[in-house]
Design a protein around this nucleic acid. Sequence first.
DNA 1: TTCGGCATGTAACGGGTTACATGATTGA
DNA 2: TCAATCATGTAACCCGTTACATGCCGAA
Lengths: 183, 183
Amino acid sequence: MPSDLGHALLGLLARRPSTGYELARRMQRPVGFFWTAGHSQVYPELARLEDDGLVEHDEVPGRGPLPTKRYRPTAAGLDALRTWVVADLAPQPVRDLEVLRLWSLWVVEPEAAAGLVERVRAGHAERLAAYEADLASLAGDPAALEPDSPAFASRLTLEGGRLTRRAALEWCDLMLAELRRPR
Amino acid sequence: MPSDLGHALLGLLARRPSTGYELARRMQRPVGFFWTAGHSQVYPELARLEDDGLVEHDEVPGRGPLPTKRYRPTAAGLDALRTWVVADLAPQPVRDLEVLRLWSLWVVEPEAAAGLVERVRAGHAERLAAYEADLASLAGDPAALEPDSPAFASRLTLEGGRLTRRAALEWCDLMLAELRRPR
DNA sequence: TTCGGCATGTAACGGGTTACATGATTGA
DNA sequence: TCAATCATGTAACCCGTTACATGCCGAA
């Protein structure tokens, strides 16, 4: 049974066959919005998936010094993906370095703290803009309304990003108001 | 210069001197809401911080087979914490296994997908309840209004958790509505 | 001609999780 | 008496990041 990364790659390949290089780029965006991997992770994982009979490849003309391989999921690979998607999921530990810092912001002067919050806010605003751009490009696609279409799932995840980033902006504004309240 | 974990420990010790064991427990909650660490990480990291002169300890009576050590930050440790809190922060890659699954939810039947979303929703609801419980216990504390008090920073981070989890619940409800819309 | 993109892989390192190891005290 | 809690540490393993290594093609 593959790792989380393996399932991430199966999810990408279920949408569209790709080379390792393409998968590594697709892991930056849009999948990189919630999961990332470099190419040095992708190539060994593809080999493992192939050993397990979950993906297969053919060689296509390419521009690298080594043969260019295009991968696609096998029937067993799609089964594994379907099983994993709805499998029991242990509560995920959260790991958020920004919040970790904000938790200690009482040790610095309010003005310095406000500066930090401004920068955090800018990061959320940037991410929100990216989500909305991707959502806009899906807006005209009728497939985005069909639950068995990849565009549908893409739309829902982007919608989630939008809602949570908006909440984060609201939170930053709340912090700024408190930090700058005259005293 | 210490790792992120080291700064997390300094942040805890700045609030209250503790033994390694206590730090490991405090890393489960409330700090565990956004950063976690097991005791097997804590003990070596404390030794490193002490080598760097950022924390110091004295031995107190305890119940373990080895001497019980109570740690507190040194002046240099508090300086390091202050510097780190407002230091430049690279945009953080997000790693969210739940969203990764939802991104592939188009491969399963809508009813099964809705079941997954229900479970995700329950997790958010549970976390939200924890935030609100902690917020309630801070409600009467006048220190929670003073920007140089730990309670102030605790309140703001909990407020952030509340806002983002509420947004997540809203999102889950949106997904459920779409998955169950008659077709 | 030089830089960026295509294209594949390996190796070293660091951090996190899980398991191993020990042992006293307190409460059910 | 048995389990949980206090209390400290080490070791093995897995995963992710960064760096190493190679080399062609097209555009500026």
